[in-house]
Simulated scan of single mutants.
Amino acid sequence: MTRIKTKAPTTAACLTRIAQVHLGLETLEERRSDSLDFHEVSVWSVRDALRAAFEAGQAAAREA
């Protein structure tokens, strides 16, 4: 059986998705506006985002 490799998302895309899902951020791009660039987030949201990033790194290492 041949395993089909799919292209992994870029690091930037992965981090953006984690920020959207866990931190409620629309983008990680700097928008030069305090109201758009600074956010108040809960510690459990930061913890969940860090865990997701760690797990994404582990998955990427297994696929390499």
Rank of each mutant, 00 (worst) to 15 (best):
A12V: 02
R32E: 09
R51L: 15
E30Q: 11
L36T: 02
E55R: 13
K7R: 14
R62L: 11
R62T: 08
A61G: 05
L50Y: 06
P9W: 03
P9R: 04
R32A: 06
C14Y: 03
S42D: 09
V41G: 01
V41T: 03
S33A: 12
F54E: 13
S42H: 07
A12S: 07
V21T: 13
L50V: 07
I4T: 15
L23P: 09
G24M: 03
S33I: 04
V21L: 10
F38N: 06
M1R: 09
E55Y: 13
V21R: 14
T27V: 06
T11H: 09
P9S: 10
L23K: 07
A53E: 07
T16V: 06
L25K: 09
T6V: 15
V41D: 00
S35R: 08
D48K: 03
S33D: 15
R62K: 13
Q58T: 07
A60S: 07
R62P: 05
T11C: 03
E63Y: 08
E63T: 11
Q58D: 06
A52K: 05
R51C: 11
L15Q: 11
F54N: 10
E26D: 15
H22C: 13
S33V: 05
S45Y: 00
A19M: 01
E29F: 03
R17N: 15
S33E: 14
T6S: 12
A53C: 02
P9L: 08
L36D: 10
A19S: 04
M1W: 12
D37M: 01
K7L: 06
G24T: 05
S42Q: 10
R51H: 14
V46M: 13
E29T: 13
R31H: 02
L28A: 01
A8T: 07
A19I: 02
I18Q: 02
A19Y: 02
V46W: 08
A12W: 00
A60Y: 02
L15K: 12
D37W: 00
A64W: 04
E40T: 10
H39Q: 05
P9N: 07
V46N: 01
T10Y: 00
A8P: 14
A60E: 05
T10G: 06
L28Y: 05
A60G: 01
R3N: 12
E26I: 12
R51P: 03
R62C: 02
S35M: 00
T10H: 01
T6E: 15
E40R: 12
W44S: 13
S35L: 09
